[in-house]
């Protein structure tokens, strides 16, 4: 049941309890209880809309920044990551395998704002040895969703 509920919420986000209940053939109370439990356990950490900002008047740009750093005894990259994660500009942050150590997604109003953040805050952070910034120029798919319209279905209206 948990997996089915999460499947619906992670795919669509905004679905009422009774709608989930109808689809899964269980009661609304069961759905509400399961969701509350998953929220309390931190399995569900939040709800938000997926926005294609390029279609709005809001200025918003993203950059992927590969950060190399110096690991510290006992904590590895945790302290450095916790420091970087506190900046509001940081949208998401992962410890990754590969050439870099941390993968930081930074959000800003324009390229200059991001460049300033990297130059003034991120690169000089103690423990950071190098950064490599890639600005997002165009988004094709986000959170599992294609951004641009796919061709409409050719299905016939009635078929055997």
């Amino acid at each position: 049941m948990q997996e089915s509920i999460l499947g619906i919420l992670a795919g669509e986000g905004r679905v009422a309890d009774d709608e989930i209940a109808a689809r899964l053939g269980i009661s609304s109370d069961e759905v509400a209880g399961a969701i509350r439990e998953m929220e309390e356990q931190g399995i569900i950490i939040g709800y938000r809309a997926l926005v294609d900002w390029s279609k709005t008047d809001v200025e918003r740009v993203y950059a992927y920044i590969l950060v190399e750093g110096t690991p510290q005894h006992g904590v590895g990259f945790n302290d450095l990551a916790a420091h970087i994660a506190r900046f509001d500009e940081v949208h998401s942050l992962h410890l990754t395998s590969g050439t870099a150590d941390l993968n930081v997604v930074v959000e800003g109003r324009d390229f200059r704002e991001i460049a300033r953040f990297v130059a003034e805050k991120l690169a000089p952070s103690p423990g950071v040895t190098s950064t490599s910034t890639s600005f997002v120029l165009k988004t094709y798919k986000s959170e599992g969703r294609l951004i641009h319209e796919t061709p409409s279905s050719q299905r016939l209206a009635v078929s055997p």
Binding site: R155, L156, A157, V158
Partner: peptide, 17 residues
């Protein structure tokens, strides 16, 4: 099928695919 094709704003539950 011919009847449906002449109409707009139809929700078709007639589709076998």
């Amino acid at each position: 099928f011919d009847l449906v094709m002449g109409m707009d704003d139809v929700i078709s539950l007639g589709v076998g695919e």
